[in-house]
């Protein structure tokens, strides 16, 4: 079976800070790991500043995938805005944080304030 997915971040170089991103099983929507579980709000994503936290989040992601909550969790390297919010370094991950560029009325950009 061919892969129908190109999972994982494509960022080369510095991998931290990072957030953990996945697809929600039921909705297919992009979700982000928080301390309490998962959120659809890109500004509420938990940020790993060190390798230990990132590894722990990744392990939690794998457990959530095994528990059929999410699909394809992976760490996404981010830059922090002046307000401390995580913006993905790679344009593909940014697209997932926002929604389709051709439809500002759809996806997260339509529901949540921009990451500033």
């Amino acid at each position: 079976m061919a892969k129908d997915h190109r999972a994982g971040s494509k960022v080369r170089g510095e991998k931290l800070p990072a957030i953990l991103m996945a697809s929600h099983l039921l909705e297919g929507d992009t979700v982000f790991k928080t301390d309490a579980g998962w959120t659809r709000d890109p500004s509420a994503a938990k940020i790993a500043h060190d390798a230990e936290t990132a590894a722990a989040m990744e392990a939690e992601g794998k457990a959530a995938a095994a528990a059929n909550l999410v699909i394809d969790p992976y760490l996404v390297p981010v830059d922090l805005t002046d307000g401390g919010l995580p913006v993905a370094k790679h344009f593909r991950d940014v697209m997932r944080q926002k929604g389709p560029s051709i439809h500002p009325d759809m996806g997260k950009q339509a529901e949540f304030p921009p990451l500033r």
């Binding site: 997915h5 697809s23 528990a67």
Partner: peptide, 25 residues
């Protein structure tokens, strides 16, 4: 949905029915 199929098991089945997982949905 009840967890008896994992994503690895389900994926070939959904693909046989035209259902993909894309970036947002």
């Amino acid at each position: 949905l009840d967890g008896s199929l994992s994503e690895d098991e389900f994926k070939p089945l959904r693909l046989k029915n035209g259902l993909y997982l894309q970036l947002h949905a």
